[in-house]
Write a protein that binds this DNA or RNA. Sequence first.
DNA 1: TATCCTCGAGTTCA
DNA 2: CTCGAGGATA
Length: 672
Amino acid sequence: MTAPDAQRRAEELRRQIEHHNYCYYVLNEPQVPDAEYDRLMRALENLEREHPELITPDSPTQRVGGMAAGGFAEVRHATPMLSLANAFEESEVKDFDQRVRNLLETDTVVYTAEPKLDGLAVSLTYIDGSLTQAATRGDGERGENVTANVRTIEAVPLRLNPGDWPDLLEVRGEVYMPRSGFGAWNRSARERGEKPLVNPRNGAAGSLRQLDPKITASRPLMFNAYATPTDGLDSDNQYDTLQLLKQWGLPVNAEIRRVSGVDGCLAYFADMAARRDSLDYDIDGVVYKVDDFARQRILGFVSRAPRWALAHKFPAEEEITRLLEIDVQVGRTGALTPVARLEPVFVGGVTVTNATLHNEDEIRRKDIRAGDEVIVRRAGDVIPEVVRAMHERRTRELPPFQMPANCPVCGSAVERLDGETVARCTGGLYCPAQRKQSIRHFASRKAMDIEGLGDKLVDQLVEVGLVHTVADLYRLDHAQLAGLERMGGKSADNLIEALQKSKHPPLERLLYALGIREVGEVTARSLAAHFKSLDALMAASEEALTDVTDVGPVVAGHVANFFRQEKNREVIDELTAAGVEWQPPEERGGEQPLAGETWVLTGSLSVPRAQAKSVLQALGAKVSGSVSAKTSVVLAGEAAGSKLAKAQKLGVRIMDEDQFAELAARHGIRLD
DNA sequence: TATCCTCGAGTTCA
DNA sequence: CTCGAGGATA
C-alpha cells in the first residue's frame, strides 16, 4: 500500500471506529457485531504498525475503550491496566504454553483459570480499608473517575473486612450485569415504556457511565475482583491472592480454578464452554494466568500485554455475512417458509449457511432483501437467526422479497388466509414436497417409528414413483428397494423388516402419523383415549369431537374434514389391507399417584427424556413443555436454563434427578 | 372479551 | 427453541 493510500485507509478506519464508539457508548445502540468492531480495530493497529508515521495522538488505538461520555474526571492509573493477548484456537493456547515453558525452562506450569466476564474493567483504590476511588480502564494509562457510580454497587465493599490489608490497596475487577438482573430490568423497563437495554454488557457499560449515580444505583450491577497490582501481600501466587481478596470482602468469581499444564487449561475451557449458558452472567472466554508470581516476573511483558497471561475466547456469536438469496421451502402442511441462503460464515462455533426467515411479515418488518449484508447470530445451541440487515451498507437498490404466487415445487396457487401469517401451497398431496414431508412424518420416531426410512430414501421413493401415499410403503418389495441408489440387499432387508415391525402401533401413534392438521402428539393421545377406536373417531360429528379436551371448533373441523376426504379413507383402507393394525389404548391400571399433576422436564437428564416422560405418564402425570403457574413440578437435569429460572421465579416446586429416581422407586419403577 | 396456558409446526448443524 | 394460534378460563 502506498503512503497516501495508507493514510486514506487509516482515516477511514478511524472515522468508522469513532462512529461505532459513539453508537455504543453514547447512544447505547451498537450498529455492528463486536467481532466486526474488533476487526476494524485490528486493521487499524496493523496499519499503524506498518506505517508508524501515521499514528496520531487522538487515534482510537491510542485510547482503547472508547469516547468519554463527558463529565468524568480523568484518572491516571498508578500501574497501567494491561490488555491480554487473545487466542481463538487450541493451537494458539498450546503455543502460549510452549513459550511459557521454554522461557521458564520447566515441564509443566500451574495456571489459574478464570472465566472472562463480559463487562467493564475497573480499578478500585482502598486507603486504610476504605474505598476512595474507582476508575474505568480507559486506555490502560488513564481512565475515568466513576467513584460515585461504583459506590452504588452493593457488591463492592465500601470498607474492607478487618484483615492485614496494606494501607494502600488497588483491586482490579469487572463490573457486569447478571443475566437475571438484566432480564428483570428489561421487563420493568418495558412496563414503564422505556427502551430496554441491548445486552448485559452494554447495560453494564452504559450504567457505569451515567452522570447521575441514582441511575447507576437502580441498575442491577455486580462486581468480581480478579487481580491486584499492589505488592507485598501475604501471597506469592494468583490463586491465593484472590482468596485473600475474598477474605477482605471483595467478591471473587466462584468458577476460578487452579489447573495444571495446557491440558488442564483446555479441559477448563471445554467445561466452561459447556456450562456457559447456565451461568447467570455472560462470558466471552476464559483467562489463563501463570499462577506463581515469581514466574510471572521472569516472563515479563511484551509491549502492552503480559507474557504470563492469555485470554482464550469463544467464537463470536454474531457475524456479518452476505445474504445471497431467499429461497422458499414447502413444509408438510404446505406452509411456505422463506430461508436465507448465506455466504458461509463461522459464527458461534459452526459454519452457518442457512437461516430461517420465518415468514413474509418478518422479512417486511426487518426489511431484509437478497443481496443485503446481514448480521447473523448463533448463541449456544440456538438455531441461527438473521438479526437484521445492514441497510446503511446497501450500495444499490435491491428488490424487496415477495412471496411467490405459485408453489415453487408444484406450481399450485399459494394462498394466505386473512389474519394468518403463513402462506400455504394449495396443492395438497398433489405437491411432491408435501407428499415427501408427510411420508417422512409418518415414518418418524414419534409416529410409526420406521427405522431406516430416512429423508434421502423418501425423496427417492417419491421421485421414482414407487410411493405415492403412506400405504404404498407397505407394498414395497425387496427387488424394488434393492434397485435404488445406495441401497444394497442388506439395507433393503432391514427396511422391510422395520416396516413389518411398525405394523401394530397404538391408536394414538397411528392418528399422529396420519398428519391431520393441528393434531400433534398430545391431541392424538386425547382423541385415542376418548374414542378408543379409529372407526368411532371416523364416524364422529364435529360436535362430538369438540367434547374432547383440547379440541375446539377449529381442530374438530380439521379432523372431520380429514376423514371426509375420499383419498384419506382410501389410504386408511389400504393400510388395513396391508396388515397395519392399530392397538386399542391401554387402560391405565394400578395407582396413579401423580394424577392431576403437570410436570415439565428441563436440562439434560441421565436417562433419555422420552423415558422420563413415559415414567411420569405411567404415574398419571401430564408432561408439558412450558413452565407456568399451573406447573406442579419442574424436573431439572444438568445445565438447566430458562425454564428452571422461570420455575424459581414462579415458586414452582423443583426436583432434581435423584429425588425423581427416589420417587419413581417408591412406586416400583426403576430408572436405568 | 381479554388473558393465560399449551400445543403444533418449522428449523440448523455435525 | 421460538413463534403463532387454538382452547380454556375468568
